[in-house]
Write a protein that binds this DNA or RNA. Structure first.
Lengths: 126, 126
DNA sequence: TTACTTTTGCAACTTAGTTGCGTTAACAAA
DNA sequence: TTTGTTAACGCAACTAAGTTGCAAAAGTAA
């Protein structure tokens, strides 16, 4: 569907993404904005932002949803196939700006792939 | 903790895995065994089987848990880093017996990685 | 300002998985 | 074979993330 009106909730959500480098979980966003935006609205706005190619989403290992700004996604094409890195120590999640070459898989047509890497991030592995 | 007693529930769960090639979702197992085993027990047995290296688990794109027999896992070492393939048409999920080489990631220590590939399986892409 | 329609908040719901606790059933020892 | 121990089980109640329906509020074009 996409965004039609620039509302307050949308501005608030977008500014959360502007003020952050890594990914943010839906739950974290709901928590941060709880005073100003209802959780249903947060989920709905995130859906639309993803639909418009403004953000992309993925699940971490415990099944909760994370969102991050897209660098080069549009509504038509989602370049969200980069790996995501989650620090097991501090919990921070980032998009890795690298390409992972998947080997050809016999007799199967690949549509989407999702790579989640867990370990220790830069600050936590010192 | 691991399995100490060979109970009926464990036998039932194990036979489900023996009679199947691909992965099976926890929900599917609960459904199949609903007449004989309580869902709490299914979850608990799966935990233990995973603990013992008999099966390994992963999440699909909608966040639900899948289990598959391990070919070469032990309690000490889980070789569950192969990719998983989920057919978007028939829903079937398989372990792919291939290695995916992850590029080195600067300044980060990789502990675990999880690769989920979605597309059309052999039977569905004809 | 009006009229229209999107967006929002609320409450209630859904679904997967978890927890606490009293009961049942493996199984080793007698 | 029986008994005692305790792992494993079933049940009900709970948790947490996310969804739905609907009436009210807020954008926006005219």
């Amino acid at each position: 569907m996409g965004i039609i009106r620039k509302t307050q909730s949308i501005e608030l959500l977008l500014s959360e993404f502007s003020n952050s480098t890594g990914a943010i979980s839906a739950i974290e966003l709901i928590k941060r904005l709880s005073a100003k935006v209802n959780k249903t609205t947060v989920y709905r706005v995130l859906d639309k932002l993803e639909d418009d190619g403004v953000v992309h989403s993925f699940l971490d290992k415990s099944g909760i949803k994370w969102y991050a700004k897209c660098n080069s996604c549009t509504h038509a094409q989602h370049f969200d196939s980069h790996p995501h890195f989650q620090c097991l120590n501090c919990g921070k999640v980032d998009c890795l700006e690298i390409e992972v070459a998947l080997p050809n898989i016999p007799n199967r047509q690949v549509e989407v792939s999702q790579i989640l890497i867990q370990g220790n991030c830069e600050s936590c592995s010192k």
